[in-house]
Design a protein around this nucleic acid. Structure first.
Lengths: 190, 190
DNA sequence: CCCCACATGTAATCCGTTACATGATTAT
DNA sequence: ATAATCATGTAACGGATTACATGTGGGG
């Protein structure tokens, strides 16, 4: 249930139309919570129905016409409630590990190439984050908001660093492995 | 589309019934791809329909009767195909970062307590992984399968280490922050 | 005039989650 | 007998993804 709250946050930062929100998500929030324009329009409808946001009355609403939203007091209150309420962390899920486990049974053919591709992507993402850090969080940026957003960015940087390191290690390990086509059966250990 | 392939992998490791699969998932695969028994039964039905697995004919199938499955050649082939095919990494999504970003707008009240809770959980998980590493991947465990599964475990350890470190840093930062109730508006930077 | 980019949506499908239902086996 | 547990499912719902539909405004 994070998307509506991500939208409320974005709208509090700056009232926007659906497409503007989509673009702003792509530029910043999508780094930790991505959403397509379809999702966003649907949520905007719901949030309006629940009385958390309202369309700015300045523009007439119509299909193809821009429609901007702002957050109502009830929306801000709901966001504050959700932010402070305890939530358990979701267990991480990653298809790459499923593939690795599968490769232990059916063979590692072709996997190394894809690991290299992933490594390149994570390195690129890491470089992008570091660029943002230099540009947006240099000296003198020290408000509470700056510090919190910097914390999020640091998490991104550390995660991409983890991936780059782990994939490098994994590739090294792969080079020492016999490129087998898998095994038929064997004892299981869990 | 990882669940069916995780199931194929588990069944290749050892033919099992639905509930046995569920238990084995909980004990090992769920660390990187969790699934409930309902999901597993649904997927078993699909996989059987697609000709990737079949019920072992030894037991008559009926509600409440154990029914074991084994992987057919087509299933092994599909698993090998999927494992070697390129796949883009999914962007990470974490509600905690949404909450942090929201807190920058509506205030950090209550968040620190929950961060401490998360920290404790991640430290517990880290300890569990390290125990598994000592127990199952000591010296002398050196087959290809061991090495690949060890790589997965190392990823888990490194990720939990990241979380523990990041949450510690974040809590430290929180202590230096004025416990504000949020701000009304302000310039946005993305 | 026509095409394309902008903007807002609808529909279908899949996956995951939660709650519930039902049959078989075992212990008391 | 009956209650608890094992085992296999069904049903309903919600979020995410993908494909498609519709309308507006501007440039060539």
């Amino acid at each position: 249930m994070s998307l509506p709250h991500a939208i409320l946050t974005a709208l509090l930062e700056k009232p926007s139309s659906g497409l503007e929100l989509t673009r702003r998500f792509d530029r910043s929030i999508a780094y930790f919570w991505s959403a397509t324009h379809q999702q966003i329009y649907r949520e905007l409808g719901k949030l309006e129905g629940e009385g958390y946001i309202r369309a700015l009355p300045t523009e007439r609403p119509a299909r193809g016409q821009k429609k901007s939203y702002e957050v109502l007091p009830a929306g801000r209150q709901e966001l504050a409630r959700w932010t402070s309420a305890p939530q358990d962390p979701k267990p991480w899920r990653d298809a790459l590990f499923v593939r690795l486990r599968a490769a232990a049974v059916v063979g590692t053919t072709g996997l190394a190439d894809d690991l290299r591709r992933h490594l390149a992507q994570h390195q690129r993402q890491l470089a992008e984050y570091e660029e943002i850090e230099e540009r947006d969080f240099g000296p003198g940026r020290d408000t509470t908001q700056d510090r919190l957003q910097h914390l999020i960015l640091r998490a991104g940087i550390d995660l991409e660093t983890f991936w780059s390191q782990w994939l490098t290690d994994a590739l090294e390990e792969f080079e020492r492995l016999p490129e087998s086509g898998g095994r038929e059966a064997g004892p299981e250990r869990e």
